[in-house]
Amino acid sequence: MLIQLKKNYLLLWVLRVVMVPIVLILYAAGLILQLLFGLCTAVGTLLSGLGGIAAVLALLDHCYAEAAVSALVALLVCPYGVPQLLFWAGGILLAAATALYTCLYRM
C-alpha cells in the first residue's frame, strides 16, 4: 500500500495532513503518561514507605490483620506495581506515534 501511495502524491499529502493531529495526540498522550509515571513513582515511594512503617508498627502491636492490609496497600502503591502500567502505556503510545511518523513522513 505504501508503494502505491508513493505513486499518488496528492493522496499521500492528503493522508499526511489528516494524520498530523493523530500523531500529535499520540505523542502528547505518551508524554503525559510518562510524566504521570514520574509523579506516581515519587508519591508512590513515599506512600509505600509509610505503609511499610505502618505494617511494621502493626506487627509490633500484634495486629496481624492490620499489618497484612498495610503491607498489601504498600505493595499496591509502590513504584513497581500499578504506576509501571503508566510507563508501559506511555511507551506504547510513543512507539505508535513514531511508527506513524516514520511511515507517513519519512517516505
Rank of each mutant, 00 (worst) to 15 (best):
E66C: 08
L15Q: 05
P83N: 01
I32A: 07
G30R: 01
P83Q: 02
Y105A: 11
P83W: 01
T102H: 12
L35V: 09
I25F: 01
Q84W: 08
K7P: 02
L59K: 15
Y101M: 07
E66Q: 14
F87R: 05
L5H: 04
Y9E: 15
W13Q: 15
Y105W: 11
A65M: 03
C103M: 15
I92G: 00
M1D: 08
G52N: 14
Q84K: 14
R106N: 14
A54I: 10
G30L: 03
R106L: 15
A55D: 14
A58W: 06
I92R: 06
V14Y: 09
S70F: 07
V56Q: 10
L75Q: 12
L94W: 03
Y80R: 09
I53S: 09
L15I: 15
L10V: 08
L36R: 00
V73L: 13
G51E: 05
L33V: 00
Q34K: 08
I3E: 13
I32P: 00
T98R: 10
L39F: 10
P83G: 01
Q4P: 04
T41G: 07
G52S: 07
L11R: 04
L39I: 13
I25R: 06
T98M: 07
L36E: 02
L75K: 05
V18A: 09
I25A: 14
A97T: 02
L2N: 04
L10C: 02
V56C: 10
G44Q: 07
L10Q: 14
G44I: 08
A28G: 00
L47T: 00
L59C: 13
G44W: 08
R16C: 07
F37Y: 14
A42M: 09
T98Y: 04
P21N: 03
L100K: 11
V17K: 13
